[in-house]
Design a protein around this nucleic acid. Structure first.
Lengths: 265, 265
DNA sequence: CAATCAGGGTTGTATGATAACACGACAACG
DNA sequence: CGTTGTCGTGTTATCATACAACCCTGATTG
């Protein structure tokens, strides 16, 4: 048996701890927008780490848009909560209503993507979709290969919109949804479902091939409604039950510093 | 006259350039999931920067979930194309077709958000929207206060969807669009536009207040079509002549290195 | 054959030094 | 008095080097 210990060692680098610590200061309002952070040297001594570590932490916060810095002046808390990156908190997603919201957003994107795809698809797109469908027919329902083909089909639809951002967003949202479903692990499989799911996909494909915008939207909407049911979401306004994720303890290294950092939070 | 020279110094830190470069390698498939990256020392020499810079770049990519690293072994491209964050490259957005794509995506989200808002808005939501509209009436067109009120109105609409992810995504996309418009700076203002824009907002507000889903969608669609024109995008399928943003010559520092990095993209 | 251990390679961290830049103080100048 | 030029100080950005922690491999040893 292969134990699964991966994904556990969620990188407890020092820079991560420092970044989290500063992040908390900002989130809890002890550092207000526009405020200047202490100098790198000062942060290094207060945290008891090297200036290098502080710099990596600041680089990270800067890339997240939380702070900005200018050579010769200092680092400052960003004015507006205007993050340059969009991130979805894994823990939040465990809440049923959050999951339903994300599923709703995915639905909106998928349906409109289907509409655009029906308008703009090229022959190459149609071939790619067809290949993905073949892959789904060949693989057993729920297998890895099947899932890959499923994802592939949706990806090709997104691609056919000729809008790369549509693809990016869709993939991002779908991935989060998929993760959450896998974590919950409460999906029952059956041969019936295989047939039904495949049929839904084929209707989407046909509509897109025929350039039937409304049909593609409708077919995609049906597919997502079906998927919602299969995942345990009552359609409409009802809530889903997602299993909470177990807390994972992180291995202890640099315990002295960590304690110092954690302590002052 | 107040010249606008801010926002130009978009942080071209070396670590940013290195991170972008590696990111591209991954996105374009030259580095496949599971692949091991060159060692930090190797990257440092190939990029012609210090190992410290490389480390900051890697720290950033790691925090974005694109790669993971283990002490003593090396850094590896993350298995699933499972970036935990979604980012929009500022440079890419300068291309007219990219901007049009993002604008299209924004439109989709706004229109559907308007629909959901018409279904789910509460009295508090309506009051907030009304306040935002008042703010727009009071402020001169194009002023900072006006822009703030405009943003505020759209934010309240997103809020009324009762779907926090919708709000997050919408704000994120809108911010990028707004930044790009400001950077281009090719918007002409007139009193007519003030009246027209305000009227568009009021129609959206009215439809949402009346719970008119289709009307809200239509009004929002009109508003966005208008906004597209005002920004210089031809509506529909026509290509946009978004004035290509003037290349901002970043003050020359480390020009040799930059060239090397840019060159190998 | 199995366990141990030595060595090299790699990342994580520390430290010091230098360059680039911002800002205020202050003098020189009109 | 106001403006401009210069300089010194403080800060970030980058470089360079060294060491610690850790992984992997392979030889040594019992």
């Amino acid at each position: 048996m292969t134990l699964k210990l991966d994904k556990v060692n969620r990188g407890p680098h020092l820079s991560t701890l420092v970044a989290s610590s500063i992040s908390r200061e900002i989130a809890q309002g002890r550092l207000k927008p526009g405020d200047q952070l202490p100098t790198e040297a000062a942060l290094a001594t207060t945290f008891g780490v090297s200036r290098n570590v502080v710099r990596e932490a600041i680089a990270r916060l800067r890339s997240e848009g939380r702070i900005w810095s200018q050579q010769g002046r200092g680092a400052f808390v960003a004015e507006s909560n205007n993050p340059t990156v969009l991130t979805i908190d894994y823990e939040t997603l465990q809440r049923a209503d959050s999951f339903r919201n994300l599923f709703e957003l995915r639905g909106i994107l998928e349906v409109q993507a289907a509409a655009l795809a029906a308008k703009r698809r090229s022959d190459a797109d149609l071939k790619a979709m067809g290949d993905a469908l073949s892959g789904m027919r060949a693989a057993p329902y729920g297998s890895v290969a099947w899932l890959r083909s499923d994802l592939e089909f949706h990806r090709t639809v997104a691609e056919a919109t000729r809008n790369s951002y549509m693809g990016q967003f869709l993939v991002f949202v779908s991935e989060r949804v998929r993760e959450s479903i896998l974590a919950a692990g409460n999906q029952q499989k059956s041969d019936d479902m295989a047939r039904i799911t495949l049929g839904e996909h084929e209707r989407i494909f046909a509509a897109i091939r025929n350039g039937d915008v409304e049909g593609a939207q409708a077919a995609m909407r049906d597919h997502l409604a079906g998927a919602a049911l299969r995942v345990g979401l009552h359609d409409g306004e009802a809530a889903a039950e997602a299993a909470p994720v177990p807390e994972v303890p992180s291995p202890v290294r640099h315990s002295r510093l960590r304690k110092a950092i954690r302590g002052q939070a």
